[in-house]
Amino acid sequence: MSALPFTRRAGVLPGYGLSLGITLFTVCLMVLLPLTALIVKASGVDWSDFSTSITGPRARAAFALSVGASLAAALVNGVFGTLVAWVLVRYRFFGRRVLDALVDLPFALPTAVAGIALATVYGQDGWLGSLLEPHGISVAYTRLGVTVALVFVGLPFVVRTVEPVLHELDPKVEEAAATLGASRVATFFRVIFPTFAPALLTGVSLAFARGLGEYGSIIFISGNMPLRTEIVPLLIVTKLEQYDYAGATAVAVVMLAVSFALLLLVNLFQARVRRARGLR
């Protein structure tokens, strides 16, 4: 009987039919159908158009910027996100609760608001921009600005992925290391870091994936100059505004492929780590 999809093992809890009906209906209508539209459109695109859309200098520059800035921001968050998670889990200090709540702000704050706020703060007359400009560091309308926006957006991904693992860490393991003669630094790198490294990688990958697709918080600070500060999502929007649906679709498909490949890799890696550690 389990040869057909969606046949279940017989149990007694009611509501299987109803919940299956609602879920399948919604997923088909809201997820599968629109994705099919994307695939149908992409497969209808002439191959040479497709490759021009994604290998032209403008597209190449956009991909390079999106990948480069997302990666840089994810790495920055990898370092500082770990530090923030560590401080939140291990230390008790005045204002810890506020700090904890602030970590989630980038999740909750609409991206457009973050975008205009960052653009204003880092603008020439902004609070931080006016401090940095005299030293020759311009953030607004540069690739650095794109990275800064992505650091803002990606922070909670790293903190909230690493935090639970640090929380679960048994202090007895560290005490054992100390009784065996390890220094605090040695304990951190030999005992603690290996424990949360997989979670850190996941968090950094999630931040990276989110960075690739991010739009609202970047477009205000980046200035959107083709070949220089134009990100991939903006390229899609621009092509749509010019009614170049085929071009937009081509770029979108490549971007989707990149982020799915990344997520797939992370999942495979995690499965391997779990297996190697004998979990599940």
């Binding site: 879920t23 997923v27 997820v31 599968l32 159908l33 629109p34 994705l35 539209a37 994307l38 149908v40 459109k41 991206t111 994936a209 690739l212 697709g213 991010e214 739009y215 609202g216 999502p233 903006l234 899609i236 929007v237 749509l240 649906y245 937009a248 679709t249 979108a252 971007m255 989707l256 982020s259 799915f260 997520l263």
Partner: peptide, 22 residues
Amino acid sequence: LIDLPFSISPVIAGLIFVLLFG
């Protein structure tokens, strides 16, 4: 599939509906 909207760029989320109903 249920998680998918989380991992798709918002711009692409808009695009797929344009490709469907535009």
